[in-house]
Design a protein around this nucleic acid. Structure first.
Length: 647
RNA sequence: GCCCAUGUGGCUCAGUGGUAGAGCACACCCUUGGUAAGGGUGAGGUCGAGAGUUCGAUUCUCUCCAUGGGCACCA
């Protein structure tokens, strides 16, 4: 055999007189490297391959070693195997299925005659980490498919047999550690001791192959890291996320209340309503600027409306319906069909287009019980919804204007980190393929023309049209779907909408469904998590609290309270006979951006002592300046307090 | 809708087969105190709802409701 050349990242070349494995290349470089090798990446491909992979001539190889980001995939892959092994050693009656690596960890789905209890998980964690200490060598074997099927059938591993049959390959790879083995394509570690520690996290029910018609399996979530320190760090982030949970924050801050009589339908308290209304009026400002008109449409319709819109066929399970006498009514789950009726109310000319109508109507959707979640998945909500009826040649400008509007809003709110997803036709849909081709084509053209980066989500569109989803990435790097823009050729058709063109003939308008915040409910939930409850002053339900030191400062405080009220500031004078530290603590917990302290000093020289949520103090601030500056900050809807703005 | 767990005063949580406890919050009293909890006293719960087992159920069983972790659904 001729020489085999392997190219390394430092542009050096290693030569072999056989086709080496990744590990063999590592060994040729050094024994320390070989010991730390966990996999490889070849020819610039990000996919991590098994260290036992045989490399052909002229392969560009990057060795994945322990401690690297890429190595986690290998470690977790093997960790899933060890976990499955541990489960079967503890409970031999449990059958294995699959166990993939996911972000931040891995899971394994088991077919178990019993549900795993928390005690089982503790036992399992012990067992798993005991197995790691045995440091068994992982070997790879290639079996003919027939042998694999026969073997797994004998073992009663019916799910494995199904997978192998579906693969339809001639041979399959098997990974072994000790006596335990599993069908797998890898990659895996050399020895199980390379996994330092495995943390079992939780259990869940999950359907075989993700289909609710299939049997339900027992899923165990777990994670593994390169070191105990990294694991600790990850667990800390989980804790942080828990603290920022909007359900906790919205309760602690007194914004939202839930009652079992209204599942999935939150009350907004007098404080929560302030946040809600401020956001709504901010959007209304945008509507003026971007040429939208606001409308109000009915809450309940004769069901014939949804029959015509196509919702009855595609969305029926989610509609709250009621029968009055002989007549079927439906509570509106979305504004669009009603808006189509309104469009048809007057004869439209091409001169009337684009016709942009916004609606803060309350929507109700009967969600499956298990889907409800705090403010982010509710049964009743209000979208910052608008529909734009326009000509095809106006589409590009409309999409552009929407993206500008959205960018402005997101930046104002400190949410500049967002991504665009382009979702194409789903299986369950209305309209001909021809219409879909057209709609998808226009949308993609617009994205390209505008030079926007996007990712395609095949089959994820709405049933009436393709869409752009705006995925906001929050402070903890979690993605949330908020804004959306959907193209719809179908509903104008169902409602036979027309406009008279320049040619004096009838034409059909295109309908754009769009929202920037998504729904106010969901947005407030996400925004609370993003900001950890520390809202910008203009959105804070409580903006200023004045705290006197003794009752002798009462007069000065009352006057200041009055001045701030006149400046439009939401201010509260805490005149309780309590110590200052006590009042401060309460104000901190309620995340009030400005805490004003008044004592002898302040009364004497007409100043205020200001404390921010950061704990920063500024004494001797001129009272008149404070009133002026906070008024200005609120009017401009600044993201930061005026103290921080200055710095 | 499915699997699992949970449900004790406004909130956070102990606890028990013999009808309940703490801290915070609340009320009253004392305290006038400069940047995250001053002290005392008191009120407040038929232990999510219904049924069953039992001499007796908040505790055990079942059903329902709600919540939580997932799955599925949804955009």
């Amino acid at each position: 055999m001729s020489q085999v050349r392997i190219h390394l990242p430092d542009n050096s070349i290693k030569e072999f007189d056989f086709q080496p494995t990744v590990l063999q290349v590592a060994e040729s470089i050094g024994s320390r490297l070989a010991k730390d090798t966990l996999g490889g990446q070849i020819n610039g491909n990000p996919e991590v391959i098994d260290l036992r992979t045989v490399l052909p001539n002229d392969t560009k190889l990057k060795i994945v070693t322990k401690g690297s980001e890429e190595s986690l995939e290998v470690i977790r892959h093997s960790a899933a195997h060890v976990m499955a092994q541990a489960v079967q050693e503890l409970w031999p009656e449990v059958k294995v299925t699959i166990g993939p690596v996911i972000e931040n960890g891995f899971f394994y789905d088991f077919d178990s005659p019993f549900a795993f209890t928390p005690e089982n998980l503790k036992e399992l964690e012990k067992k798993v980490n005991f197995l790691l200490k045995k440091n068994e060598v992982v070997t790879r074997e290639v079996w003919p498919t027939a042998k694999a099927i026969e073997t797994f059938e004998k073992m009663g591993e019916t799910f494995k047999v199904e997978i192998i049959k579906d693969l339809g390959a001639d041979e399959v790879s098997i990974y072994k550690q000790g006596d335990w083995f599993d069908l797998c394509r890898g990659p895996h570690v050399q020895k199980m001791g390379q996994i330092k520690t495995i943390k079992i996290l939780s259990t869940a029910g999950a359907y075989w192959r993700g289909d609710e018609n299939n049997p339900q399996l027992q899923r165990i979530y777990a994670t593994a890291f390169n070191s105990k320190e990294e694991l600790a760090e990850y667990l800390k982030i989980l804790e942080e996320a828990k603290k920022r949970d909007h359900r906790k924050l919205s309760k602690d801050l007194g914004l939202v209340y839930n009652h079992p009589f209204a599942p999935g339908a939150p009350f907004f308290t007098e404080y929560g309503t302030i946040v809600y209304n401020e956001l709504q009026s901010y959007m209304r400002e945008g509507y003026k600027k971007y040429g939208y008109s606001e409308v109000i449409s009915p809450q309940i319709f004769d069901n014939q409306l949804y029959d015509r819109s196509g919702h009855d066929a595609n969305y029926k399970d989610n509609i709250f319906a009621t029968q009055v006498g002989e007549r079927d009514f439906a509570v509106k789950p979305m504004n669009c069909p009603g808006h189509c009726l309104l469009y048809g109310a007057t004869k439209k000319s091409y001169r009337d287009l684009p016709w942009r109508i916004a609606d803060f109507g309350r929507l109700h959707r009967n969600e499956k019980t298990g889907a409800l979640h705090g403010l982010t998945r509710v049964t009743t909500f209000c979208q910052d919804d608008a529909h734009i009826f326009c000509r095809i040649d106006q589409l590009l400008d409309e999409i552009k204007s929407f993206m500008t509007f959205l960018d402005e809003v997101y930046n104002k709110l400190g949410m500049s980190n967002y991504k665009i997803f382009f979702s194409t036709r789903p299986e369950k849909r209305v309209g001909s393929d021809e219409v879909w081709d057209k709609a998808e084509g226009y949308l993609e053209d617009a994205l390209k023309t505008l030079g926007l980066d996007y990712t395609v989500n095949e089959g994820d569109g709405a049933f009436y049209g393709p869409k752009l989803d705006i995925m906001f990435v929050d402070a903890l790097k979690r993605p949330w779907q908020l804004g959306t823009l959907q193209l719809d050729f179908n509903m104008p058709n169902n409602f036979d909408l027309k406009y008279v063109g320049e040619d004096n003939a009838n034409h059909q308008p295109v309908m754009i469904h769009r929202a920037i915040l998504g729904s106010l409910e969901r947005f407030i939930g996400v925004y609370l998590e993003h900001t950890a409850g520390r809202l910008p002053t203009w959105l804070s339900p409580r903006q200023v609290v004045i705290m006197n030191i003794t009752s002798s400062h009462d007069e000065y405080c009352k006057k200041l309270e009055q001045e701030l009220k006149e400046a439009g500031v939401r201010v509260h004078y805490d005149d309780r006979n309590e110590k200052l530290g006590y009042k401060i603590r309460e104000a901190q917990l309620k995340q009030i951006p400005y805490m004003i302290t008044v004592g002898d000093q302040e009364v004497a020289d007409s100043t205020v002592a200001v404390r921010l949520l950061t704990g920063d103090n500024k004494k001797g601030y001129a009272k008149s300046d404070f009133v002026k500056n906070i008024k200005n900050e609120i009017e401009n809807k600044n993201l930061k307090t005026f103290f921080e703005e200055v710095n």
